[in-house]
Design a protein around this nucleic acid. Structure first.
Length: 106
DNA sequence: ACCGTGACGTGTC
DNA sequence: TGACACGCCACGG
């Protein structure tokens, strides 16, 4: 498996519960050329690796990856279970719950 | 090797 | 604002 996929998964595991980040933020953090790469990496997510893929959304706070979960509503349910408000497949107060991987350096 | 596709993001109109 | 175009890059057929 490609190394950058491992890196993306590692970053995803660093996301604190109740917070979310974006594919672009991960791409920037890892120095990847395209935001599509984290997206593809999450697509490679294997169950049993403890990867909170539901905490990664696009730059608008939309749950663009919900169709890749067991059920289309699972992603929203997992987020709401952590206290993240979701409305119309979009995260409410996205700016407030957004978490940048750069914060891990503090 | 070529082409279409995609859990994306930014710039235009 | 919102729809659309384009750049981006890995992967499968």
């Amino acid at each position: 498996m490609a190394q950058y996929i491992q890196d993306v998964h590692d970053v995803a595991r660093m996301i604190p519960p109740g917070r979310v980040t974006s594919y672009g933020a991960i791409a920037k953090f890892l120095g990847l050329g395209s935001a599509r790469m984290p997206g593809w990496a999450m697509y490679q997510t294997v169950s049993g690796h403890d990867i909170p893929a539901h905490r990664v959304v696009n730059s608008k706070g939309e749950l663009s990856g919900r169709h890749h979960f067991a059920t289309p509503t699972l992603m929203q349910e997992l987020l709401e279970a952590e206290g993240v408000q979701v409305r119309n497949n979009k995260i409410v107060n996205f700016k407030e719950v957004f978490w940048s991987p750069l914060e891990i350096l503090n």
